[in-house]
Design a protein around this nucleic acid. Structure first.
Length: 188
DNA sequence: AGATTGATCCAT
DNA sequence: TGGATCAATCTG
């Protein structure tokens, strides 16, 4: 288990992203997440992935967001404080990982859609979770604590021009909200 | 293009 | 309580 020093630097090479990182406007957090590292503790050791693609979901009125239908048992975590994990099961088979953003009572999160893993590109939110052994046991997990699952800044500098902006995937039901350019992907 | 799979949500 | 739906992926 990686020990945390008072500076927030863990025993490996990265700086664990603190709650203040997540407590910002969701589109800003989404872009900032590109080039950060997802770190998962497993009995077999650490598995990491560099974040390549994300999608933002923000606010009560975003019809593509699960929270747009209100505060329910499932969406409750999106109304929680920034820096929590929102993990849900989709199509009965796959899991999707989000990080909760902004502030308590305001529902917002960023979906992790792709990472560069040790063995190459892992493209798709279900594949990301499968690769990093992420499931609903990690729903509501505190991502700022440096255990089980967290995010790190390892100093990668991302140029603005290296970020592509696109509509979100699989939300055609959301009407005009589906067209919003809230998907961000690193050009590789 | 079609199958898969089960939790969730809302309308009976 | 039933049934449509789903922020996806695999196979043919």
């Amino acid at each position: 288990m990686p020990a945390m020093s008072r500076t927030g630097r863990n025993s490996l090479s990265g700086l664990i992203l603190p709650a203040s990182f997540y407590a910002r406007p969701t589109l800003q957090v989404a872009r900032s997440l590109l080039g950060k590292y997802l770190v998962r503790e497993t009995p077999a050791g650490l598995r990491t992935g560099r974040i390549i693609e994300v999608e933002a979901y923000s606010g009560f009125h975003d019809r593509a967001s699960h929270a747009s239908r209100g505060r329910t048992k499932r969406t409750e975590v999106m109304f929680g404080p920034p820096g929590l994990a929102y993990v849900y099961l989709i199509y009965g088979i796959y899991h999707c990982l989000n990080v909760v953003t902004e502030r308590a009572e305001f529902p917002a999160a960023v979906l992790i859609r792709a990472v560069e893993g040790e063995a190459g590109l892992i493209d798709g939110p279900g594949r990301v979770c499968r690769s990093l052994a992420i499931d609903r046991e990690l729903n509501c997990h505190d991502l700022t604590g440096g255990t089980s699952l967290w995010l790190e800044d390892r100093g990668d500098r991302i140029r603005r021009t290296a970020i592509g902006t696109f509509p979100r995937i699989g939300v055609d039901y959301a009407g005009a909200w589906a067209a919003k350019p809230w998907r961000f992907r690193l050009k590789m």
